[in-house]
């Protein structure tokens, strides 16, 4: 086993799909520009060549249509992966996702299963405008029936995507475009990462920082800065929001007694809000200060870079929040 190998997240995701498609002929891929172009970020590069147009299909710009097609294919025995270029386009297919994809298994008492994985790449903070900048993650966390995955490293991305493809439940898989070129160790041997298992990205004793997606990296940077001031922060990456590994978060808070939750969504009813509420309910007696949230401002994302910086969570904002607890 060669654990020394480092690849980037786009390559890791490509490997995940390739391996699963080789393993299971029912695994197919559909989406805008996933075939000939190999994905706008090259995530599905080479898959058309290897598996052919039957299994790797370029779709028209019609999210509602091809998500519906994916659901139908899933119900009838395939294991489809549908790529929605950016989460901002998910609303086009919301009826299919919330009312069919999420619910059919339940509403038919398990007679139908929808083993569909929807992949989508967050491009928040890129200056592409407010309608190309959202994650909308909380929408799906709030839709029972869906599983929600939010990887931050190449290793996690590969292991989790393989689990998503094999899962019989519908999965929303959120990739972060700015992490695609980030390299990290990924073993060549096959591995899977189970859902509902958080990863402690850095050990610490004084403060717990919970973060998702690219904000895990901001949290790690913040932790490095804080250590210079004697504050040892633990960084917890939940990796999947549904199911959520409450235990790891609670245990971390029991150890550190302080928590900052970082979210790439607006604070209102967001991911951080939910985690904060869980901690307040289940670890209240272990808290040594208020639960701090670092989330996006409650505004549509601006285009001007200085304003984007004001709006989104970052290392500095995490540090500021952390210091309020000491």
């Amino acid at each position: 086993m060669s654990t020394q190998r480092e690849i980037n997240m786009a390559e890791a995701l490509n490997e995940a799909m390739r391996e699963e498609m080789r393993r299971d002929p029912t695994v197919i891929l559909m989406g805008e520009d996933v075939g000939v172009l190999g994905g706008v970020y090259g995530v599905s590069k080479g898959l058309l060549d290897e598996f052919g147009p039957e299994r790797v299909r370029d779709t028209p710009i019609s999210e509602d249509g091809f998500v519906g097609a994916g659901i139908g294919a899933a119900i009838t025995g395939l294991n489809p992966i549908v790529e929605i270029m950016y989460p901002d386009f998910l609303p086009c297919a919301m009826n299919q996702i919330t009312n069919h994809m999420a619910k059919l298994r339940y509403m038919t008492g398990g007679q139908l299963t929808v083993p569909l994985t929807i992949r989508s790449a967050i491009i928040q903070g890129r200056g592409s405008g407010a309608d190309h900048a959202q994650t909308l993650i909380p929408w799906f966390v709030q839709t029972p029936g869906l599983k929600v995955v939010v990887p931050s490293t190449p290793y996690d991305a590969k292991g989790l995507l393989k689990t998503a493809i094999r899962d019989k439940a519908p999965v929303m898989f959120f990739e972060t475009a700015k992490l695609y070129l980030n390299k990290g160790p990924v073993p060549e041997d096959e591995y899977l990462i189970p859902f509902g298992k958080a990863d402690i990205k850095r050990e610490g004793t004084d403060l717990t920082i919970v973060a998702i997606c690219n904000l895990v990296l901001e949290a790690l940077e913040a932790a490095k800065e804080l250590e210079k001031e004697g504050i040892k922060a633990e960084v917890v990456d939940p990796r999947t929001l549904v199911p959520l590994d409450k235990e790891t978060i609670i245990n971390s808070v029991k150890k550190t007694n302080r928590i900052v939750v970082v979210d790439n969504n607006p604070s209102a009813c967001g991911v951080a809000a939910e985690i904060a509420a869980i901690v307040a309910e289940e670890a209240f007696d272990y808290l040594d200060g208020p639960i701090m949230r670092v989330a996006t401002l409650q505004i549509p994302e601006p285009v001007a870079p200085p304003l984007i910086k004001l709006m989104l969570p970052n290392k500095e904002k995490i540090i500021t929040a952390a210091k309020k607890l000491f």
Binding site: N257, F284, D285, Y286, L287, D288, G289
Partner: peptide, 8 residues
């Protein structure tokens, strides 16, 4: 003013 863990 006292934190929950301090109180406990």
């Amino acid at each position: 003013k006292i934190s929950p863990i301090a109180k406990r």
